[in-house]
Write a protein that binds this DNA or RNA. Sequence first.
RNA 1: GGCCAGUUGGUGAAGUGGCUUAACACACUGCCCUUUCACGGCAGCAUUCACGGAUUCGAAUUCCGUACUGGUCACCA
Length: 547
Amino acid sequence: MTNKELANLMYPSVNKTISDYETIYPERNIDDKAVVSRFAPSPTGFVHMGSLLTVFVTNKAAKDTNGIFYLRIEDTDGKRTVESIDGIVKDLNSFNIEIDEGAISDNEEIGNYGPYVQSKRIDIYNTFAKWLVENDYAYPCFCSEEDINEIRKVQESKKDRIGYYGKYAKCRFLTNEERAERIKNGEKFVLRLKSTGDFNKKVVINDLVRGSIEYPENDIDHVLIKSDGVPVYHFAHVVDDHLMRTTHVTRGEEWLPSTPLHIELFKKFGFKVPKYCHLGLVMKVDEEGVRRKLSKRKDPEAAVSYYHEKGIPVEAVKLYLMTIANSNFEGWMDSNPGKSIDEFKFDFKKMSKSGSLFDLEKLLNISRNYISRLTAREVYDDTLKWASEFDKEFYEILTKYKDYSINIFNIEREQKKPRKDYESYSSIKSQVWYMYDELFNDNLEYDFDKINNSEEIKNILNEYIKLYDEKDDKDTWFNKIKEVADTLGYASDMKAYKENPNNYKGNVADIATVIRVVLTTSRVTPDLYVIMKLLGKDRIINRFNKF
RNA sequence: GGCCAGUUGGUGAAGUGGCUUAACACACUGCCCUUUCACGGCAGCAUUCACGGAUUCGAAUUCCGUACUGGUCACCA
């Protein structure tokens, strides 16, 4: 019996050839240097921070070269419950990552190289599988799980390499007649590669991130198609990335060891091997001080939604990702102030080979800097948007006092080096709450410093309110605080105070602190002069009386 | 256990044989400025690049070995 006859028996419904598909999915008509790349997640819910880095970098590489970035859904695992892809699409959208082609919802897609969902490509895989059988590059295997375990036991006892290969690959030695017989009897089978690799020879992987890496050639007769007719990752990867004309395969470094298999498959088909970019994993140090992969299950900060809840600007997350992706990015930013991240040329070669530690501290710092460069109006709009979803109370206040809020956000903003105290939109309320009477009313805890005697505090307030005038400019305003200091026996001149502290009850800073704390409860606030201007005399008097 | 990769300060890292007495950024510490905080300024923070050996006039940078960390060895991706 010929291989062709066997192939027909195995894949009776196949009615196309590989060259048919080559015609349907022709080489892309784009520049030689253009990168065609993809994000290919399995549909297990939402996008993980590590994946987001991969997506980001992959997408950037395509954009930088006027290439194509597409989304392919790898849903070939029957055990993982197939969920909607909406979560993935939503997360991508929320980071403004544009998809040129691919699935855009559970039953819609764009682009001419689809379907982009692997479970809809079974006919294609079968066509390629059939070709392998015809050419003696693959064969049906009838081994059960027990058979495989048996083989492993033998290999372990002989200290041989584990795996279905060479003389251990029992079904490799069946005749086509035997194969046909068993198939006709309805026996389940998987399709296995008939590997021609030699473990003692080396194959070189030219990885864009890692340079050239030598591996032993693959000689394992890997399963290509499972007994349910669905391909495994390895096979789908080769078929899809060829047909979709992918030029750059970006994936986690966990795929490195199976790359020799992928290369063998590409070569058997006579396809061009794409460029590989194996990225280091994003790590974190957990409570026990152990360095490990950032986990979707254990680490809240692994989920992309965490950043939305926290109100960390999408742009800041992107900037952070780029700093871990290409370490020269920060320097580039500094020497190109105001330029968009889009103008930065990303380079795979500059990526770190080892997995980088996820640093929330650094992200927040970038976020602080980013927010400090926005206009007060932008801060208002973004915060309002955030609050509409995550803080209804604040949302209402912001809506009610729009102009007032914008003025608050503008404190010490329009200067060369703006204030950097908002690390996220969620943190803003806790820094400006005292500006709003609605939030100022309950359970006030005043954080006084040196002067904490209420009689003395009232004295100071009484003395001060006599002098306060809303129309004062900043110097006049401060001179009046000095005046109160002088009247009550505090030093108005800091130098004089430092020389002879014992001659005074305290100094002008203590007086300013009292006013500050009575108005805001806090010792730490932005410029008190501006705060008082914004509060207005009525509120000031109220708060003085309230104390 | 086999195969592969990685290892520069608290963190991200620059660095590809002499310009490195190891850049930059974050964090941290001290001082200064100052009505608080922040900003800013100044200073400090790895005599050393996991360890051992080799090559060399010279090594974080090349080679070998060891250790540690990570990945992988499924009809999961």
